[in-house]
């Protein structure tokens, strides 16, 4: 009985644990982000339950950051939901990249992994060589991130009132996005998409209800596509 073949259960456990371990270094950046979200939500006057449930239901940091001032500012519901949709549209890219690897799974697994699919979970998962048990790896990575996000949100909510405005914590949102976007500007069409979108957002800033953001996204994506065609043929 010594050293029998590892059974299916322990293999799954191993794979899941490998996912947790791969996610750990990223959590160092996610934990402060979650705390800051909680603090901002409290400073904006959201109810505690709404702030925490947003982490639970949306589980999408950047869109939660954007939603906080909009919620507090009484922006119409449909516009807010559409803004969240545009910010989270990049997840469709991750969904497309992981889809072939998840094709053999049950609908329940697909739903669960889709719920957990975030920037940070994707970053770790896409580097893992696909195998018959890799979905346990994805689950481990996603669950680690999920747990960290819920706990750090709760901590931020708890600390909320004690952190003064002068700490400029809201500045961490554009900084996080700078960290995500700058390394991704690898070619000219992507750079063009970013610059035209950014410029449009500044010029259209006066439009009500963050419509400038939506307009900017549209302009940027179109410019990227045009640029791609232009530089490919040229």
């Amino acid at each position: 009985m010594i050293n029998a073949m590892p059974d299916g259960f322990s293999l799954r456990l191993q794979e899941g644990w490998a996912g947790v371990r791969a996610e750990l270094p990223i959590l160092a950046g996610v934990a402060p982000f979650g705390m800051i979200y909680g603090v901002l939500a409290m400073q904006a006057g959201l109810p505690v339950s709404a702030a925490q449930c947003m982490s639970f239901i949306l589980f999408a940091g950047s869109s939660q950051f954007m939603a906080v001032p909009l919620l507090a500012g009484g922006v119409p519901a449909l516009i807010l939901i559409f803004t969240v949709f545009v910010i989270n549209l990049r997840h469709a890219l991750y969904s497309a990249a992981l889809a072939p690897r998840l094709q053999h799974l049950s609908p329940l697994w697909k739903g669960l992994l889709a719920y957990l699919l975030t920037d940070e979970m994707f970053a770790v998962s896409i580097t893992r060589a696909p195998g018959p048990l890799t979905h346990w790896f994805y689950l481990g990575a996603g669950a680690a991130l999920w747990t960290c996000w819920q706990i750090s949100t709760a901590l931020g909510i708890f600390l909320g009132a004690q952190i003064p405005d002068s700490w400029s914590l809201d500045f961490s949102l554009p900084l996080t996005f700078i960290g995500l976007v700058v390394p991704a500007l690898k070619d000219r069409p992507a750079l063009l998409a970013a610059l035209t979108a950014g410029l449009t957002a500044v010029l259209a800033y006066g439009l009500p209800n963050k419509l400038g953001l939506l307009l900017a996204a549209l302009v940027g994506i179109s410019a990227g596509l045009l640029g791609e065609r232009l530089w490919k043929s040229g």
Partner: peptide, 13 residues
């Protein structure tokens, strides 16, 4: 889809 992240994120930044 490829241009969504740079466009949206820069429009916020």
């Amino acid at each position: 889809l490829r241009f969504v992240p740079p466009a949206v994120l820069t429009a916020i930044i």
